[in-house]
């Protein structure tokens, strides 16, 4: 399984957000961090990859198959996208909300194996204690983890997560990222996650793609990307990449004088 983006331009009604994006071959079983400042085009890229926005030019390919040629049903079975916003007042339990995500592509009747998939997913993300809680009563962080569960339960080939950790505390940031990493190793999907925390990205991702103003500025191994001067320029800060005594990468950032 591979995902690749070539010469992709996309945007909204005449206004171009992404310009000539190239991200060559992303292999299954890779955890890719999409980094870049606010309004750099991360969400637009995700929507285009998920097929919600038609590319103006260029292409997105899953195994040499252009996603615009896939039928909607087929595409949503293979590509799962978690939008940034989550939160609603529907009277549904956490279990039901994850089940409904699965049921979009798995027939009308609820089968026993559907229920297994839902409980396994909730379990893997450490959400089983919330299963019969109403989604309207969740905290922001809990809701975000449920949204991740809605994406993972469908067992897609490509998983796109728009800021999966933005509302989480330190413990849950680490636990959700670990669960995603486990999923990457187990089922070998391509996972692309937009992340603002560069240290978190360095710790978990196999590859980083840096986006600014709708263009890819850098693409490569975390250690290589985070040491580039372009990181400091992009975020308008001074940065140094250090290694902690445990061997983890650490981005030390300061505001420019």
């Amino acid at each position: 399984m591979t995902l690749s983006i070539s010469n992709l331009s996309a945007g909204y009604s005449g206004h171009t957000v992404l310009e000539d994006i190239n991200v060559p071959i992303m292999e299954g079983g890779t955890f890719i961090g999409l980094i870049g400042p606010n309004a750099s085009g991360k969400s637009t890229l995700f929507k285009t990859l998920a097929g919600l926005i038609k590319p103006m030019s260029g292409s997105v390919k899953i195994n040499d198959e252009d996603i615009t040629n896939l039928k909607r049903k087929d595409r949503s079975r293979r590509v799962a996208y978690m939008p940034q916003a989550f939160g609603c007042n529907a009277l549904l339990t956490v279990f039901e909300s994850v089940l409904l995500a699965l049921k979009q592509t798995s027939g009308w009747r609820v089968k026993s194996d559907n229920l297994d998939r839902v409980s396994d997913t909730l379990n893997a993300l450490g959400l089983s204690h919330l299963a019969s809680r109403g989604i309207a009563d969740l905290s922001g962080g809990q809701a975000q983890m449920v949204a991740v569960a809605q994406t993972l339960v469908r067992a897609p080939e490509v998983i796109l997560l728009d800021e999966p950790t933005s509302a989480l505390d330190l413990h849950h940031q680490l636990s959700i990222m670990t669960s995603i990493q486990t999923e990457v190793g187990r089922r070998k999907p391509v996972v692309m996650a937009a992340l603002h925390d560069l240290n978190l990205a360095a710790k978990f991702c196999d590859r980083l793609v840096l986006l600014r103003d709708g263009k890819v500025l850098a693409d490569g191994l975390p250690a290589d990307i985070l040491s580039l001067p372009v990181i400091g320029e992009t975020y308008r800060v001074e940065t140094d990449l250090e290694k902690t005594h445990r061997g983890a990468l650490y981005v030390d950032a300061r505001l420019r004088a």
């Binding site: 919600l52 049903k73 949503s76 079975r77 799962a80 409904l100 009308w108």
Partner: peptide
């Protein structure tokens, strides 16, 4: 009833439903 799952997904919000493949 035939559209029950997409309709339930719509209760999660338009964007979420759309991201799950609902037209």
């Amino acid at each position: 009833l035939y559209r029950t799952w997409p309709m339930t997904a719509l209760r999660m919000g338009e964007e979420t439903a759309e991201s799950m493949g609902v037209d």
